[in-house]
Amino acid sequence: MFWINDAQLDDEQKAAVRQIPLDTSFLLTGPAGSGKTNVLLLRARWLRAKSLSDFRIIVFTSSLRDFIRTGAAQYGVPPDAVVTAHQFFRDFLSDYGQKFEATGNFEQDRSMLAGQVNSLIISKNISDIYPALLIDEGQDYTDTELLVFRKLTPRLMIACDTRQSIYRQTVTHEIISSIVENTVVELKYHYRTGLKICTVADKILIDSKNFPSIRDHCKYDEKAKPSSLEINDCSSFDMQIELIISKLSKQVDLYGDALIGVLFPKKEQQVAFAAALEYDATIGRKETIRVNTLHGSKGWEYQAVHIGGCEALSRMGGVQKRLIYTGILRARTSVNIYHTGHIPGYLEGAFSSILPPKRDPDLSELFGD
């Protein structure tokens, strides 16, 4: 999860922390599990060692903020330096005596907040008031948000993986590199996720030109801990909940203190499962279980992942493939998918890539039941 000492870093990761000149802004790219967030935190620690302590580490969600704060404390970075973009922008407005009136609509509020901050910067000619800003999950920000970050600091570091862009309003890819003068540092290899899981992920985002394979650069030890994926077809959502809980009762003992993620496409699915888990008496240790939406799980990592309610994926619009892609890559070793009725064909096809070939059906079988 978070590194213990420098022996755990490969040469590319070490170079990203130490060998980029102090005053250089850069884009850090790499697949899930390549260590981008760890490098970002270590770069922050390196900035402190250079007496540049008034930086901010900016993340997209409060869930991810809480996760990264645990790593910040481990690396000697003040946890309060890790903030959400929403809070960062609101605090900035407050410093200049301005308030933001939210409407409750996420996309609308996000656009209005960034626009108000940008207008304030222009009207008061504000620039470079933070010695450094370090942005995690940079692919999830809009052009306006990233341009605001650029105006507020001479040292901008952006960690990014466009394969995990899961929001409708996201950055134009040309801008994300141009605002750091096209200085790009690539982390090629990843170590977290099992080979079978990577194989399925590649089949979900099958466009190899725009979404490079992660299986080809996988350094996970498949022999020591074989990875697994399973699709569970359930008669109802209640049956999904029951099956997930039955699997969790075994995994919490098997994996010890390692975290287990239970994720859902929709908030109401998450709430229903969390209520069932709270009243369940079969699981002795629940403190390692994290229940979240697929959006909210961004940036987290788990030993095992359960993704329920996948029949809802088809209603998630154009981001659905990247959403389930991101969800399964939260796991190290085990992924279980649950659905009632049909799941999208791309997901079923991706899972079939790790199964033995099926026999040709008889003609009579093509007519159904």
Results as ranks from 00 to 15, higher is better:
Q13F: 02
M1Y: 11
T282V: 07
K151T: 04
G194A: 05
D140M: 09
A159K: 03
G138C: 05
K247W: 04
I204R: 12
Q139E: 15
G368S: 03
Q13T: 00
L229H: 04
F2W: 15
I206K: 06
Y141C: 05
Y141E: 11
I214Y: 01
E101I: 08
T37W: 00
D143F: 04
P357D: 13
H173A: 13
T333Y: 06
E287F: 02
L329K: 07
F106M: 02
D11Y: 05
S53A: 14
A72L: 02
S119V: 01
I122V: 01
Q164W: 02
H86D: 13
V171D: 08
V319G: 14
H217Q: 13
K223C: 09
A274K: 01
F367H: 10
I122A: 03
V291E: 06
G296M: 03
V335K: 09
A159L: 03
V185M: 02
R163C: 13
T326V: 07
Y96V: 04
D91H: 05
I68L: 10
I20A: 14
V335E: 15
G368K: 00
R65N: 13
S364N: 12
F106H: 09
F211E: 11
K209T: 02
S165W: 05
Q116D: 11
V252W: 00
Y130V: 06
H295R: 12
D216Y: 10
E174C: 01
Q98V: 12
L254E: 12
G317C: 10
L42N: 10
V83C: 12
F367N: 14
S246V: 06
H190N: 06
I354D: 14
D10Q: 01
D10A: 07
Y279N: 13
I307C: 07
K225I: 09
M157R: 00
S165P: 11
Y338R: 01
V200L: 04
N210R: 05
A331T: 06
L259C: 05
E242Y: 03
H86V: 13
R192Y: 04
N125W: 04
P154N: 10
Y75G: 14
S178I: 05
Q303A: 07
I126G: 01
F89R: 01
H217E: 05
G309S: 10
S235I: 13
Q251N: 09
R43T: 07
G115C: 03
S127K: 05
R65L: 04
V305G: 04
G341C: 13
S208Q: 08
F26N: 15
A15G: 12
P265W: 00
S314L: 09
Y130K: 06
S177V: 00
R65Y: 02
K209S: 09
R315D: 14
T288A: 04
A275V: 05
S62H: 12
Y220L: 05
